[in-house]
């Protein structure tokens, strides 16, 4: 009886998941469809006669864009962690005065629309000559992740047992030593979570790329897909192949680091 009910639920769950993931399936399907079949009626529900033209085009043309995105993503991860981890330490364990105000400012910072930041950055970068540069894009992309990173580090580091810190102090360790040899090793999971989100947000960013880096020699993959759509509206299989390749990091992260993803989503919203 219960066994049957459980199976019924699994079946329903599979149906829901299939419905939800249909657009993702469709993206993959179209990426393998022959150009002449793209406009077939009825459409090809499964690529029986797959083509790799789209993927060949990706590897012929998009490698620089993928490399740029990788570089921007990694740069954003480093910058975010370097700034956010010490700040989390100061807020959570060193009882920084004005910490509540700072927390509040970080929450407010997360509410500022990216398009507004993009305009501000455009005006600033225009004067500094940082438009269309990779470092400029890294800094702009990191602003999406830094407030989140600080809040997450603060939350996680508050959970580090005080006895460990006191023991370190008794042994004569200063704030820096404690941070390096106790706090950082114990924060491995939160560093992973913050890095994961910083990377994913920088990799997926379109607004900053399309405003601050629109005329750059090296454009990230999101902007490359966008330009592709603009130039070449008939080659949807190639566009979708690029989209599939651009989704690979997300897929890898989902498989490898799923629990960090869930932890990060929840940490921002729910306090236990």
């Amino acid at each position: 009886m219960t066994e049957r009910k459980v199976w019924w639920k699994t079946a329903l769950g599979v149906v829901f998941t299939a419905l939800m993931l249909f657009p993702v399936y469709w993206m993959v399907n179209v990426s393998f469809t022959q150009t002449r079949d793209l406009r077939a009626d009825p459409p090809h529900w499964f690529p029986w006669d797959p083509t790799f033209e789209g993927y060949e085009a990706v590897f012929a043309q998009q490698l620089p864009a993928l490399g740029t995105s990788l570089l921007v993503g990694l740069g954003s991860v480093v910058l975010t962690v370097v700034i956010a981890a010490p700040a989390g330490y100061a807020l959570a364990l060193l009882h920084l005065r004005g910490g509540r105000t700072l927390n509040f400012l970080l929450l407010v910072a997360q509410m500022i629309p990216a398009v507004v930041m993009a305009m501000g950055f455009y005006a600033v970068y225009n004067n500094l000559g940082l438009l269309n540069t990779i470092p400029g894009l890294i800094v702009a992309d990191s602003t999406i992740a830094v407030p989140f990173g600080v809040l997450l580090f603060t939350a996680f580091m508050s959970g580090i047992p005080r006895e460990m810190l006191q023991a370190a102090r008794v042994d004569g360790a200063g704030a820096w030593r404690t941070f390096r040899s106790i706090v950082i090793p114990m924060s491995r999971n939160s560093i992973l979570t913050v890095s994961l989100f910083a990377f994913l947000w920088a990799w997926s960013d379109f607004i900053f790329a399309s405003t601050l880096n629109r005329n750059g020699d090296l454009i990230p993959i999101t902007l490359s897909i966008y330009n592709y759509i603009g130039n070449n509206t008939t080659q949807w299989n190639a566009i979708m192949a690029t989209a599939v390749v651009a989704s690979v990091p997300a897929a890898i992260l989902l498989v490898v680091a799923q629990r960090y993803v869930a932890a990060g989503v929840t940490a921002g919203a729910v306090k236990d």
Partner: peptide, 22 residues
């Protein structure tokens, strides 16, 4: 299955948007 539901959220927005456009 619940983990699979995260996929749309992790994809770059531009990827999802162009898929929906098509």
């Amino acid at each position: 299955l619940r983990a699979m539901f995260l996929v749309p959220w992790l994809l770059p927005l531009i990827v999802s948007a162009s898929t929906w456009a098509w």
